[in-house]
Design a protein around this nucleic acid. Structure first.
Lengths: 159, 159
DNA sequence: ATCCTTGCAAAGCATTTGCAGTCAC
DNA sequence: GTGACTGCAAATGCTTTGCAAGGAT
Protein backbone atom coordinates (compact mmCIF):
# COMPACT_ATOMS: atom_id res chain seq x y z
CA UNK A 1 0.00 0.00 0.00
CA UNK A 2 1.08 3.56 -0.70
CA UNK A 3 1.76 5.66 2.37
CA UNK A 4 -0.88 7.92 3.82
CA UNK A 5 -3.39 7.40 6.61
CA UNK A 6 -2.28 4.04 7.81
CA UNK A 7 -2.97 5.03 11.36
CA UNK A 8 -6.64 5.15 12.10
CA UNK A 9 -6.99 7.66 14.88
CA UNK A 10 -9.46 6.04 17.23
CA UNK A 11 -12.58 7.45 15.67
CA UNK A 12 -15.93 6.83 17.26
CA UNK A 13 -16.45 4.34 14.49
CA UNK A 14 -13.25 2.48 15.21
CA UNK A 15 -14.02 2.38 18.88
CA UNK A 16 -17.44 0.88 18.37
CA UNK A 17 -15.99 -1.70 16.02
CA UNK A 18 -13.38 -2.65 18.58
CA UNK A 19 -15.93 -3.12 21.26
CA UNK A 20 -17.39 -5.81 19.08
CA UNK A 21 -14.07 -7.41 18.35
CA UNK A 22 -13.97 -6.07 14.83
CA UNK A 23 -11.28 -4.05 13.16
CA UNK A 24 -11.20 -0.64 11.63
CA UNK A 25 -10.18 -0.52 7.99
CA UNK A 26 -9.98 2.15 5.36
CA UNK A 27 -12.74 0.35 3.51
CA UNK A 28 -15.13 0.45 6.42
CA UNK A 29 -14.48 4.09 7.09
CA UNK A 30 -15.00 4.86 3.42
CA UNK A 31 -18.23 2.89 3.34
CA UNK A 32 -19.57 4.72 6.34
CA UNK A 33 -18.55 8.07 4.91
CA UNK A 34 -20.17 7.17 1.62
CA UNK A 35 -23.50 6.35 3.23
CA UNK A 36 -23.43 9.64 5.09
CA UNK A 37 -22.31 11.61 2.06
CA UNK A 38 -24.98 10.06 -0.12
CA UNK A 39 -27.39 12.07 1.93
CA UNK A 40 -30.35 9.75 1.88
CA UNK A 41 -30.86 6.03 1.83
CA UNK A 42 -28.34 4.66 -0.62
CA UNK A 43 -28.33 1.06 -1.68
CA UNK A 44 -25.21 -1.08 -1.80
CA UNK A 45 -24.59 -0.23 -5.43
CA UNK A 46 -24.67 3.46 -4.79
CA UNK A 47 -22.35 3.09 -1.83
CA UNK A 48 -20.07 0.97 -3.96
CA UNK A 49 -19.90 3.58 -6.71
CA UNK A 50 -19.15 6.30 -4.18
CA UNK A 51 -16.50 4.34 -2.34
CA UNK A 52 -14.75 3.53 -5.60
CA UNK A 53 -14.15 7.20 -6.18
CA UNK A 54 -11.97 7.08 -3.09
CA UNK A 55 -10.70 3.51 -3.13
CA UNK A 56 -10.79 2.35 -6.74
CA UNK A 57 -10.00 -1.24 -5.84
CA UNK A 58 -12.75 -2.06 -3.35
CA UNK A 59 -14.91 -4.94 -4.32
CA UNK A 60 -18.65 -5.05 -4.02
CA UNK A 61 -18.35 -7.94 -1.59
CA UNK A 62 -16.29 -5.77 0.71
CA UNK A 63 -18.91 -3.07 0.59
CA UNK A 64 -21.55 -5.59 1.59
CA UNK A 65 -19.30 -6.89 4.32
CA UNK A 66 -18.62 -3.41 5.64
CA UNK A 67 -22.27 -2.44 5.54
CA UNK A 68 -23.16 -5.52 7.50
CA UNK A 69 -20.41 -4.85 10.02
CA UNK A 70 -21.68 -1.30 10.50
CA UNK A 71 -25.26 -2.42 10.81
CA UNK A 72 -24.15 -5.03 13.32
CA UNK A 73 -22.57 -2.30 15.41
CA UNK A 74 -25.65 -0.14 15.27
CA UNK A 75 -23.93 2.55 13.22
CA UNK A 76 -26.25 2.14 10.26
CA UNK A 77 -29.79 0.96 9.92
CA UNK A 78 -30.72 -1.40 7.16
CA UNK A 79 -33.96 -0.93 5.29
CA UNK A 80 -34.54 -4.38 3.85
CA UNK A 81 -34.89 -5.06 0.18
CA UNK A 82 -38.36 -5.11 -1.27
CA UNK A 83 -39.83 -6.51 -4.41
CA UNK A 84 -38.85 -3.44 -6.28
CA UNK A 85 -35.41 -2.74 -5.05
CA UNK A 86 -32.38 -3.64 -3.01
CA UNK A 87 -31.73 -3.02 0.66
CA UNK A 88 -30.97 0.54 1.61
CA UNK A 89 -28.81 1.92 4.38
CA UNK A 90 -29.62 4.76 6.70
CA UNK A 91 -27.07 6.66 8.78
CA UNK A 92 -29.69 8.23 11.05
CA UNK A 93 -29.35 6.94 14.58
CA UNK A 94 -32.48 8.40 16.09
CA UNK A 95 -35.76 6.57 15.98
CA UNK A 96 -37.78 7.36 12.91
CA UNK A 97 -39.95 5.78 10.30
CA UNK A 98 -39.94 5.79 6.55
CA UNK A 99 -42.15 6.73 3.69
CA UNK A 100 -41.80 4.74 0.53
CA UNK A 101 -43.08 5.72 -2.88
CA UNK A 102 -45.26 3.01 -4.33
CA UNK A 103 -44.11 4.01 -7.80
CA UNK A 104 -40.36 4.47 -7.61
CA UNK A 105 -39.64 2.68 -4.33
CA UNK A 106 -37.52 5.49 -2.94
CA UNK A 107 -37.45 6.08 0.77
CA UNK A 108 -37.82 9.27 2.78
CA UNK A 109 -37.43 9.86 6.46
CA UNK A 110 -40.37 10.59 8.64
CA UNK A 111 -39.78 11.83 12.10
CA UNK A 112 -41.02 9.61 14.88
CA UNK A 113 -43.24 12.37 16.14
CA UNK A 114 -45.15 12.40 12.87
CA UNK A 115 -46.59 8.96 13.44
CA UNK A 116 -48.33 7.72 16.51
CA UNK A 117 -48.61 3.98 16.91
CA UNK A 118 -50.57 2.61 19.78
CA UNK A 119 -50.83 -1.05 20.57
CA UNK A 120 -54.34 -1.84 21.60
CA UNK A 121 -53.56 -5.49 21.96
CA UNK A 122 -50.79 -7.82 20.92
CA UNK A 123 -51.04 -11.45 19.93
CA UNK A 124 -50.82 -13.59 22.99
CA UNK A 125 -47.68 -15.66 23.33
CA UNK A 126 -45.58 -13.04 21.58
CA UNK A 127 -43.40 -10.38 22.99
CA UNK A 128 -43.45 -7.25 20.85
CA UNK A 129 -40.01 -5.73 20.43
CA UNK A 130 -40.75 -2.87 18.09
CA UNK A 131 -42.71 -1.43 15.23
CA UNK A 132 -41.84 -0.82 11.67
CA UNK A 133 -44.19 1.69 10.12
CA UNK A 134 -43.91 2.42 6.48
CA UNK A 135 -46.09 5.11 5.04
CA UNK A 136 -46.82 4.36 1.44
CA UNK A 137 -46.87 7.53 -0.61
CA UNK A 138 -47.01 8.73 -4.13
CA UNK A 139 -44.21 10.97 -5.23
CA UNK A 140 -45.13 14.03 -7.21
CA UNK A 141 -44.74 13.94 -10.95
CA UNK A 142 -40.99 14.38 -10.77
CA UNK A 143 -40.51 11.21 -8.81
CA UNK A 144 -38.98 8.81 -11.31
CA UNK A 145 -36.40 11.32 -12.48
CA UNK A 146 -35.49 12.82 -9.16
CA UNK A 147 -33.80 11.18 -6.25
CA UNK A 148 -33.76 14.19 -4.01
CA UNK A 149 -34.26 13.56 -0.36
CA UNK A 150 -36.93 15.13 1.75
CA UNK A 151 -36.49 15.10 5.50
CA UNK A 152 -39.51 17.06 6.55
CA UNK A 153 -39.25 19.31 9.54
CA UNK A 154 -42.26 17.78 11.17
CA UNK A 155 -43.03 20.56 13.53
CA UNK A 156 -46.40 21.16 11.92
CA UNK A 157 -49.28 19.63 13.78
CA UNK A 158 -51.40 18.75 10.81
CA UNK A 159 -50.84 18.71 7.07
CA UNK B 1 -55.93 -33.51 -21.44
CA UNK B 2 -57.90 -36.10 -19.55
CA UNK B 3 -61.56 -35.31 -19.04
CA UNK B 4 -62.84 -33.77 -15.81
CA UNK B 5 -63.56 -30.20 -14.83
CA UNK B 6 -62.87 -28.52 -18.11
CA UNK B 7 -65.73 -26.16 -17.57
CA UNK B 8 -64.95 -23.59 -14.98
CA UNK B 9 -68.24 -22.61 -13.46
CA UNK B 10 -68.00 -18.87 -13.14
CA UNK B 11 -66.55 -18.77 -9.66
CA UNK B 12 -66.07 -15.46 -7.93
CA UNK B 13 -62.42 -15.93 -8.73
CA UNK B 14 -63.04 -16.46 -12.42
CA UNK B 15 -65.31 -13.47 -12.57
CA UNK B 16 -62.78 -11.15 -11.02
CA UNK B 17 -60.13 -12.44 -13.39
CA UNK B 18 -62.37 -11.79 -16.35
CA UNK B 19 -63.06 -8.27 -15.30
CA UNK B 20 -59.35 -7.70 -15.68
CA UNK B 21 -59.14 -9.42 -19.04
CA UNK B 22 -57.44 -12.44 -17.56
CA UNK B 23 -58.44 -16.06 -17.85
CA UNK B 24 -59.39 -18.68 -15.35
CA UNK B 25 -57.23 -21.78 -15.38
CA UNK B 26 -57.02 -24.88 -13.29
CA UNK B 27 -53.60 -23.75 -12.19
CA UNK B 28 -54.84 -20.42 -10.93
CA UNK B 29 -57.71 -22.00 -9.07
CA UNK B 30 -55.35 -24.52 -7.53
CA UNK B 31 -52.92 -21.82 -6.51
CA UNK B 32 -55.64 -19.83 -4.84
CA UNK B 33 -56.96 -22.90 -3.09
CA UNK B 34 -53.49 -23.79 -1.93
CA UNK B 35 -52.90 -20.39 -0.38
CA UNK B 36 -56.21 -20.63 1.46
CA UNK B 37 -55.62 -24.22 2.49
CA UNK B 38 -52.14 -23.45 3.75
CA UNK B 39 -53.90 -21.58 6.49
CA UNK B 40 -51.37 -18.86 7.09
CA UNK B 41 -48.95 -16.91 4.96
CA UNK B 42 -47.32 -19.40 2.66
CA UNK B 43 -44.44 -18.49 0.42
CA UNK B 44 -44.28 -19.42 -3.25
CA UNK B 45 -42.39 -22.60 -2.51
CA UNK B 46 -45.00 -23.81 -0.08
CA UNK B 47 -47.78 -23.00 -2.50
CA UNK B 48 -45.87 -24.82 -5.19
CA UNK B 49 -45.51 -27.95 -3.09
CA UNK B 50 -49.18 -27.91 -2.25
CA UNK B 51 -50.36 -27.31 -5.80
CA UNK B 52 -48.21 -30.16 -7.03
CA UNK B 53 -50.19 -32.56 -4.92
CA UNK B 54 -53.14 -31.69 -7.09
CA UNK B 55 -51.48 -30.85 -10.40
CA UNK B 56 -48.18 -32.70 -10.48
CA UNK B 57 -47.01 -30.93 -13.61
CA UNK B 58 -47.28 -27.29 -12.61
CA UNK B 59 -44.08 -25.38 -12.81
CA UNK B 60 -42.82 -22.95 -10.26
CA UNK B 61 -42.97 -20.20 -12.84
CA UNK B 62 -46.66 -20.80 -13.26
CA UNK B 63 -47.18 -20.57 -9.54
CA UNK B 64 -45.42 -17.23 -9.52
CA UNK B 65 -47.46 -16.11 -12.48
CA UNK B 66 -50.70 -17.18 -10.85
CA UNK B 67 -49.83 -15.56 -7.54
CA UNK B 68 -49.07 -12.34 -9.32
CA UNK B 69 -52.32 -12.51 -11.26
CA UNK B 70 -54.28 -13.05 -8.07
CA UNK B 71 -52.48 -10.26 -6.29
CA UNK B 72 -53.17 -8.03 -9.27
CA UNK B 73 -56.87 -8.76 -8.93
CA UNK B 74 -56.89 -8.05 -5.23
CA UNK B 75 -57.64 -11.65 -4.34
CA UNK B 76 -54.41 -12.11 -2.43
CA UNK B 77 -52.15 -9.76 -0.59
CA UNK B 78 -48.43 -10.03 -1.02
CA UNK B 79 -46.15 -9.62 1.95
CA UNK B 80 -42.89 -8.71 0.29
CA UNK B 81 -39.71 -10.63 0.71
CA UNK B 82 -37.35 -9.56 3.42
CA UNK B 83 -33.72 -10.21 4.10
CA UNK B 84 -34.57 -13.38 5.83
CA UNK B 85 -37.16 -14.91 3.62
CA UNK B 86 -39.19 -14.92 0.44
CA UNK B 87 -42.44 -13.10 -0.26
CA UNK B 88 -45.51 -14.52 1.42
CA UNK B 89 -49.11 -14.52 0.29
CA UNK B 90 -52.15 -13.78 2.37
CA UNK B 91 -55.72 -14.70 1.44
CA UNK B 92 -57.29 -12.37 3.99
CA UNK B 93 -59.20 -9.60 2.27
CA UNK B 94 -59.94 -7.42 5.25
CA UNK B 95 -57.54 -4.77 6.36
CA UNK B 96 -55.06 -6.02 8.87
CA UNK B 97 -51.44 -5.80 9.82
CA UNK B 98 -48.74 -8.31 10.50
CA UNK B 99 -46.42 -9.37 13.23
CA UNK B 100 -43.12 -10.81 12.21
CA UNK B 101 -40.78 -12.79 14.41
CA UNK B 102 -37.32 -11.27 14.42
CA UNK B 103 -35.84 -14.73 14.87
CA UNK B 104 -37.65 -17.02 12.48
CA UNK B 105 -39.22 -14.44 10.18
CA UNK B 106 -42.66 -15.99 10.28
CA UNK B 107 -45.70 -13.81 9.96
CA UNK B 108 -48.89 -13.67 12.01
CA UNK B 109 -52.03 -11.68 11.47
CA UNK B 110 -52.91 -8.80 13.68
CA UNK B 111 -56.34 -7.36 13.44
CA UNK B 112 -56.56 -3.77 12.34
CA UNK B 113 -58.25 -2.82 15.55
CA UNK B 114 -55.22 -3.93 17.51
CA UNK B 115 -53.05 -1.18 16.12
CA UNK B 116 -53.86 2.49 15.97
CA UNK B 117 -51.84 4.59 13.58
CA UNK B 118 -52.36 8.28 13.56
CA UNK B 119 -50.69 10.59 11.12
CA UNK B 120 -49.63 13.69 12.91
CA UNK B 121 -48.08 15.12 9.82
CA UNK B 122 -46.99 13.82 6.46
CA UNK B 123 -44.04 14.87 4.38
CA UNK B 124 -45.00 17.77 2.23
CA UNK B 125 -45.20 17.09 -1.48
CA UNK B 126 -46.28 13.50 -0.91
CA UNK B 127 -49.67 11.97 -0.94
CA UNK B 128 -49.97 9.17 1.61
CA UNK B 129 -51.84 6.19 0.24
CA UNK B 130 -51.57 3.78 3.12
CA UNK B 131 -49.64 2.36 6.00
CA UNK B 132 -47.77 -0.81 6.47
CA UNK B 133 -47.29 -1.59 10.11
CA UNK B 134 -45.20 -4.52 11.08
CA UNK B 135 -44.97 -5.42 14.71
CA UNK B 136 -41.67 -7.08 15.39
CA UNK B 137 -42.07 -9.83 17.92
CA UNK B 138 -40.19 -12.66 19.50
CA UNK B 139 -41.76 -16.05 19.18
CA UNK B 140 -41.82 -18.20 22.25
CA UNK B 141 -39.21 -20.92 22.59
CA UNK B 142 -40.95 -23.21 20.16
CA UNK B 143 -40.67 -20.76 17.31
CA UNK B 144 -37.97 -22.24 15.11
CA UNK B 145 -39.48 -25.68 15.08
CA UNK B 146 -43.11 -24.73 14.79
CA UNK B 147 -44.86 -23.06 11.91
CA UNK B 148 -48.29 -22.98 13.48
CA UNK B 149 -50.34 -19.95 12.72
CA UNK B 150 -51.87 -17.71 15.31
CA UNK B 151 -54.69 -15.46 14.24
CA UNK B 152 -55.55 -13.85 17.53
CA UNK B 153 -59.15 -12.99 18.19
CA UNK B 154 -58.33 -9.46 19.12
CA UNK B 155 -61.51 -8.67 20.87
CA UNK B 156 -59.64 -8.11 24.10
CA UNK B 157 -59.06 -4.48 24.86
CA UNK B 158 -55.69 -4.91 26.45
CA UNK B 159 -53.25 -7.80 26.71
C1' DA C 1 2.54 -13.32 14.96
C1' DT C 2 -2.29 -13.74 14.91
C1' DC C 3 -6.37 -13.90 12.65
C1' DC C 4 -9.71 -10.52 10.86
C1' DT C 5 -10.49 -8.48 6.45
C1' DT C 6 -10.00 -7.94 1.55
C1' DG C 7 -10.72 -8.98 -3.32
C1' DC C 8 -11.81 -11.98 -6.76
C1' DA C 9 -14.78 -15.27 -8.70
C1' DA C 10 -18.20 -18.42 -8.22
C1' DA C 11 -22.38 -19.87 -5.90
C1' DG C 12 -26.89 -18.87 -3.93
C1' DC C 13 -31.80 -17.69 -3.44
C1' DA C 14 -36.01 -15.84 -5.03
C1' DT C 15 -38.01 -14.39 -8.92
C1' DT C 16 -38.51 -13.27 -13.88
C1' DT C 17 -38.14 -14.05 -18.79
C1' DG C 18 -38.05 -16.23 -23.58
C1' DC C 19 -40.25 -19.25 -26.28
C1' DA C 20 -42.84 -23.12 -28.31
C1' DG C 21 -46.78 -25.58 -27.40
C1' DT C 22 -51.50 -25.55 -25.18
C1' DC C 23 -55.80 -24.15 -23.58
C1' DA C 24 -59.72 -20.82 -22.37
C1' DC C 25 -62.73 -18.07 -24.50
C1' DG D 1 -59.45 -19.40 -34.24
C1' DT D 2 -57.01 -16.14 -31.37
C1' DG D 3 -54.39 -14.66 -27.86
C1' DA D 4 -53.50 -15.51 -23.04
C1' DC D 5 -51.37 -19.12 -20.30
C1' DT D 6 -48.29 -23.01 -19.29
C1' DG D 7 -43.98 -25.42 -18.65
C1' DC D 8 -39.33 -25.79 -19.30
C1' DA D 9 -34.88 -23.86 -18.94
C1' DA D 10 -32.00 -20.23 -18.87
C1' DA D 11 -31.35 -15.52 -17.13
C1' DT D 12 -31.66 -11.94 -13.75
C1' DG D 13 -30.85 -9.04 -9.49
C1' DC D 14 -29.14 -8.84 -5.15
C1' DT D 15 -26.37 -10.85 -1.84
C1' DT D 16 -23.33 -14.31 0.23
C1' DT D 17 -19.47 -17.50 0.29
C1' DG D 18 -14.80 -19.84 -0.39
C1' DC D 19 -10.29 -19.06 -0.43
C1' DA D 20 -5.62 -17.18 -0.83
C1' DA D 21 -3.27 -12.90 -0.05
C1' DG D 22 -3.01 -8.76 2.72
C1' DG D 23 -3.34 -5.74 6.68
C1' DA D 24 -4.69 -4.31 11.71
C1' DT D 25 -3.64 -5.04 16.32
Amino acid sequence: MRAAANKHEQSALGQVLHERGRRMTRQRQAVFDAVVAAGGHPCADQVFARVRRQLPHVSLATVYNALEALVGCGQLAKIPRTDRGPARYDPRRDSHHHARCIACSKVWDIDDKAIAVRTVSTPRRFKPVGYKVEVLVECPADCPADARICVPTTGSKKT
